[in-house]
Simulated scan of single mutants.
Amino acid sequence: MTLAYDVSGTGPAVVLLHSGVCDRRMWEPQVPALAGAGYRVVRCDFRGYGETPVADRPYSDSADVAELLEHLGVERAAFVASSYGGEVALELAEARPDSVTALALLCSAMPGHAPGAELRSFAEREDALFKADDLAGAVELNVRTWVGPEATEEARDQVRHMQRQAFELQWTAEHSSTPRAELDLARVTAPTLTVSGAHDLPDFHQIAATLANQLPAAHHLELPWAGHLPSLERPAETTALLIRFLQQATSGA
């Protein structure tokens, strides 16, 4: 199996897809609660994150996740996805609509989204730090940008550690995942919750609202306290929200 992963609990499958500044450890607060609520919880590290090495050839993150689910015998699953993980979940839901039972997209990215001014500025600053070989500075820029005001220092340190490890793994990588240029959102039929944070960059408000308007069975919720990583910023509140949504979505409510 290409991806490092772990599985907890029994019941309907819920797949957790991490953000681009974290790895599967970002879901530590959610795993026991979701397993305790009666779900089989699957989480994985994309290539170049956590315990999964970088790729030695061109690849697709969504194809990797599909391969993992086939390996585990999971035919249908709900997805809870953060940021870049949301982009991967949308690709899977568009390609395999009958196999996705629900989507909870936390501050999700979206294939084909054109970055706004603030996101472009962030990317330019990050690129300048990389060119200066200032990996520590790039890590701190990401922590300042993506971790919201409600996060504890422990959560900030967790993001700092995960982002640093990802940068170190990817520093000399020759290949990166190639996302879809655009999606046919009409094919994404699963009940969907799009979440945005009031303290996040404007791009992610726009994406959440766009998805809620264009997906056939979606609604948008903005969290007034959240930055970009609500599952780490207020884990108990976010976990309760996710469980409530999954129970309603999978029961047909």
Score class of each variant (00 low, 15 high):
Arg57Gln: 15
Arg47Val: 15
Leu169Glu: 00
Ala173Ser: 14
Asp203Thr: 12
Arg234Cys: 03
Gln158Cys: 12
Asp23Met: 14
Glu70Asn: 11
Ala181Gly: 12
Ala63Gln: 10
Thr194Phe: 09
Gly227Ser: 07
Pro224Cys: 02
Glu140Trp: 07
Asp134Tyr: 07
Glu75Ile: 07
Ala114Thr: 12
Pro235Cys: 07
Thr250His: 04
Val15Asn: 06
Ala81Leu: 13
Ala173Lys: 09
Ser177Asn: 10
Ala186Gln: 08
His219Gly: 02
Thr172Tyr: 09
Met162Val: 08
Pro179Lys: 13
Leu16Cys: 11
Ala33Asp: 12
Trp225Glu: 13
Glu174Pro: 00
Pro29Glu: 07
Ala198Val: 00
Glu51Arg: 14
Leu69Asp: 10
Val31Ser: 07
Ala104His: 11
Ser176Trp: 13
Asp98Ile: 10
Asp98His: 14
Val100His: 02
Leu185Arg: 13
Ala138His: 02
Ala78Ile: 03
Tyr49Lys: 11
Gly36Cys: 08
Gly36Tyr: 01
Trp225Pro: 06
Asn142Ser: 09
Asp56Gln: 11
Arg40Val: 14
Val139Ser: 04
Ala151Val: 01
Ala236Trp: 00
Val65Ala: 02
Asn142Arg: 05
Lys131Met: 13
Glu91Pro: 03
Glu233Cys: 05
His199Ile: 02
Val88Glu: 04
Ala212Met: 01
Ser108Val: 03
Pro216Arg: 14
Val80Thr: 05
Gly112Asn: 05
Gly73Gln: 06
Ala123Asp: 12
His220Tyr: 08
Ala102Gly: 06
Thr178His: 10
Ala217Gly: 00
Val88Lys: 07
Gly20Phe: 15
Asp200Met: 10
Asp6Gln: 10
Leu3Gln: 08
Leu16Arg: 10
Leu193Pro: 07
Val31Phe: 01
Pro191Ile: 11
Asp200Lys: 09
Pro111Arg: 06
Pro53Ile: 12
Glu126Phe: 15
Val159Pro: 03
Thr178Ser: 05
Ala240Arg: 10
Tyr59Ile: 03
Leu3Tyr: 03
Ala95Asn: 02
Val74Arg: 01
Thr239Trp: 05
Ala93Thr: 10
Ala212Leu: 02
Pro230His: 05
Arg164Ile: 00
Leu129Val: 04
Glu182Trp: 13
Glu154Phe: 03
Pro230Val: 05
Ser108Trp: 02
Leu105Phe: 05
Leu16Tyr: 05
Leu34Ala: 02
Val80Asn: 01
Val80Gln: 03
Leu68Phe: 08
Asp45His: 12
His228Ala: 08
Thr238Gln: 09
Glu75Lys: 07
